[in-house]
Amino acid sequence: MNIRLQLFEFEDQPWFPHVIRQGMLDFLRFMITRLNAYEAAIPLLQELLERTRSSHLTDLCSGAGGGIASVQQQLTQRMGKPVQVTLSDLYPNLGAYEYIRHESGGAIDFIPEPVDATAVPESIKGVRTIFSSFHHFPPAVAKAILQDAATKRTAIGIFEGSKKSWLEMLLLWLFFPVIILVVTPFIRPFSISRLFFTYILPLIPLGIIWDGTVSLLRIYTPEQLRQMASEVQAPGYTWRAGRVGAGAGKYVIYLIGYPEES
């Protein structure tokens, strides 16, 4: 699937009810965590941390923080020292972030104020990451996110948990409606509103299927990511894009960038 269509996702709309958006993001976090979807990205993240002599990730566009706990644990194990993670978003999901911070024992923290990925404050440090969110941005905004990281000489890793294939689209349509109904009672933190908008008034399942379909169509291919990165004004900055992983739910499309050592 080499096409990219900039269709709309409900999750992106400012008017979209927060309770529905949060329910959709909580499901995404649950599935990414259960599938360990970003396992193949761990060596790339380790490379970025080692190149920048850092042990801190600042996650942008965190949504509900899907998979970040597993990423933090695996990096800590591989690097032999604690890796800290800070979550952030333009629309912070504070309930999910509080839960993740508690479950991680404080290894994962968050910024409660909105953070714009195209203009990250100088005070926010650490290797920047974006998981499952970069496709939300049209090319001009996506390029601005890369430019901001490069201008501030900060390493960044963009990761999409997908192979971007028509088979994934088919699996989404055929199996996800059932999966959503089965797993929703097990998503934490528990929420009555999530149950209501899943089983009584099924706005969360409808939103997930629609936004999931659009997400697959909006994900940038490695070739498109390379082209975008080549247009960023970043002397002394290295970019690399590609696909890693194998097996259902295990493919990752990535773009990493880091300043070259002086």
Rank of each mutant, 00 (worst) to 15 (best):
3 I>Q: 07
4 R>C: 03
4 R>K: 12
4 R>Y: 05
8 F>D: 12
9 E>T: 02
9 E>W: 02
12 D>T: 13
13 Q>R: 10
20 I>A: 03
20 I>P: 01
21 R>I: 01
22 Q>S: 14
25 L>D: 05
29 R>Q: 11
30 F>H: 15
30 F>K: 06
32 I>E: 12
32 I>F: 08
33 T>C: 00
36 N>C: 02
37 A>L: 04
38 Y>C: 08
40 A>S: 15
43 P>G: 09
44 L>C: 10
46 Q>S: 14
48 L>Y: 08
48 L>V: 10
48 L>C: 14
49 L>A: 06
49 L>Q: 08
52 T>N: 11
52 T>D: 07
55 S>M: 01
57 L>T: 04
58 T>D: 00
59 D>F: 01
59 D>S: 13
60 L>T: 08
61 C>T: 11
62 S>D: 06
65 G>H: 06
66 G>W: 04
69 A>G: 14
71 V>Y: 02
73 Q>A: 14
73 Q>T: 13
74 Q>V: 01
74 Q>A: 15
75 L>K: 07
79 M>I: 06
81 K>C: 12
83 V>P: 03
84 Q>Y: 08
84 Q>N: 09
84 Q>H: 15
88 S>W: 03
90 L>V: 12
91 Y>S: 09
93 N>L: 04
94 L>E: 12
95 G>F: 02
95 G>V: 10
96 A>Y: 07
99 Y>S: 13
100 I>T: 07
102 H>L: 13
103 E>P: 00
106 G>F: 12
106 G>Y: 13
107 A>K: 14
114 P>Q: 11
116 D>R: 13
119 A>T: 07
119 A>N: 15
122 E>G: 05
122 E>C: 05
123 S>W: 05
123 S>V: 11
123 S>A: 15
123 S>F: 00
126 G>H: 10
126 G>E: 11
129 T>Q: 11
132 S>W: 05
135 H>A: 05
135 H>G: 06
137 F>I: 07
138 P>Y: 03
143 K>V: 07
144 A>P: 07
145 I>T: 07
147 Q>W: 02
148 D>T: 04
150 A>W: 07
151 T>P: 00
152 K>Q: 15
154 T>K: 10
163 K>N: 05
173 W>T: 00
176 F>M: 15
177 P>H: 06
180 I>Q: 02
180 I>V: 15
183 V>Q: 09
185 P>F: 06
189 P>T: 06
189 P>C: 01
190 F>M: 02
191 S>C: 09
192 I>V: 13
192 I>E: 04
193 S>P: 00
195 L>F: 10
195 L>D: 00
202 P>V: 05
203 L>H: 01
203 L>Y: 10
206 L>A: 14
213 T>M: 04
213 T>E: 00
215 S>P: 09
217 L>S: 08
218 R>W: 01
222 P>T: 09
225 L>S: 04
232 V>W: 04
234 A>E: 06
235 P>V: 09
235 P>D: 14
238 T>L: 13
240 R>K: 15
240 R>E: 15
242 G>S: 11
243 R>Y: 07
246 A>F: 09
247 G>Y: 08
247 G>F: 10
250 K>F: 01
252 V>T: 09
253 I>P: 02
254 Y>M: 06
257 G>Y: 02
261 E>S: 12
262 S>I: 08
262 S>T: 11
